[in-house]
Simulated assay, not measured.
Amino acid sequence: MADRIPSSAEIRRWRRYLADEQAEAAVYRDLAGRRTGEERDILLALAEAEGRHEQHWRTLLGDNVGAPRKGAVRTRFLGFLARRFGSVFVLALAQRAESRSPYEADVDATDAMAADERIHEEVVRGLAARGRKRLSGTFRAAVFGVNDGLVSNLALVLGIGATGVPASTVLFTGIAGLLAGALSMGAGEYVSVRSQRELLEASSPNPDTQSALPHLDLAANELTLVYRARGMSPEEAAQHAEDVLRSVAMATGSIGVTAGGAPATDVVDEHEAIGTGMSAALSSFCFFASGALLPVLPYLFGMQGIAAIIVAATLVGIALLGTGAVVGLLSGAPPFKRALRQLAIGFGAAGVTYFLGLLFGTELG
């Protein structure tokens, strides 16, 4: 760019890129400040990479750098969240921000910069995946619980309300639905998670089996059967069993080896991913109850008729949009589309029961 004078439009665009790079580097540094170990090092490396991109735009701008500018609103919002929370939500948002990089279509950005942004998206995706894994058990129960509460109790309240029964009947029906659904969700989630954990435990190697290793008949080598049962070929199983038995004398052998030969530590990760039965049950109960309460609120405050139905539907609609957006953010999908999908599903189910209530109300009347 030294052989020509950049246009005003180019200068504005470069300044915007410069401000965005500065803001993104600040986000990664803020996130790094709330972490330790490998995650901290990775985030600081990302901030350093953004600093290289920042220098590229400074070089192009030269004397036209001008006064410091603020980055894009979404980037500054990310920085605000990173400084105060540093959660997986911020990483999920950062992942989407990296995926929207304009560098591939900008002739003034280098191919290396465009490639960096692609890789940054995958790096942040990997960091976010760690947080998603830690959240997955309890979060799954929470999301399912609140959405079931919203949709099922809205459908119940609208269906009963459409029949023309007194508001008090609708209120007590909604409260009964709240309690019944919350207890059912909590109990069902507890049984589901406990059953899943018990299946994992049944498939996990028994550590006590290691005590039998020194006493195995080396000629028969029953250990070979263990590895064949886990998927190895007879030749691989024989070799692996021989290696394990050879290492017993040095106290390094372990029966708890997977079919691929790696230590059986992944089972622990699977247990962590599904969470505990009690935490999942409590999440389901509380979130179902909080979701199921919204359709009942208008009746609790004395509203009735069509006005109560409209308010209930509005409250639930806002909540459905919110939960859909949160799920979209955590999954790396477009939050607006997920929010609309959630709203459409919830209102579709409630609409069916409302019209059935109208039909039954007309026949009874």
Rank of each mutant, 00 (worst) to 15 (best):
L171M: 14
V157K: 09
V151T: 14
F144P: 00
F139G: 15
G177Y: 03
A167P: 08
L156N: 02
F139V: 15
G145W: 02
L158W: 03
A141C: 04
A167Q: 13
F172K: 02
V157D: 05
A182D: 08
T163Q: 13
G137N: 06
L150M: 13
L171T: 07
V170K: 01
S136M: 10
F144I: 03
R140T: 14
A180E: 08
T173Y: 03
S136I: 07
S136Y: 06
F172C: 02
L178Y: 07
L183W: 05
V157L: 03
F144Y: 11
A176K: 01
V151E: 00
L158P: 05
G186S: 02
G177P: 11
T163Y: 03
F172R: 09
S152I: 12
F172Y: 12
D148S: 07
G145S: 09
A141E: 05
A180F: 03
F144D: 07
A155Y: 01
T163L: 09
S168H: 04
S184K: 06
L183V: 14
L150E: 10
V146I: 13
T173Q: 04
F144V: 10
T169Y: 12
T169K: 02
A142Y: 00
L183Q: 01
S152D: 08
G159I: 04
L135G: 07
I160W: 04
G161K: 00
S136G: 09
L154I: 07
S152E: 10
G161M: 06
G159D: 11
T169H: 10
A167N: 10
L135N: 12
L179R: 03
G137L: 09
A182V: 08
A176H: 04
L154D: 05
R140V: 12
G174M: 07
S184C: 09
G149Q: 00
V143Y: 01
P166G: 11
M185V: 09
S136K: 07
P166V: 11
F139S: 10
L179S: 09
N153S: 11
G149C: 05
A180P: 06
S168M: 12
V146T: 15
F172W: 14
L179K: 02
V165A: 15
F144E: 05
A162C: 09
G164H: 04
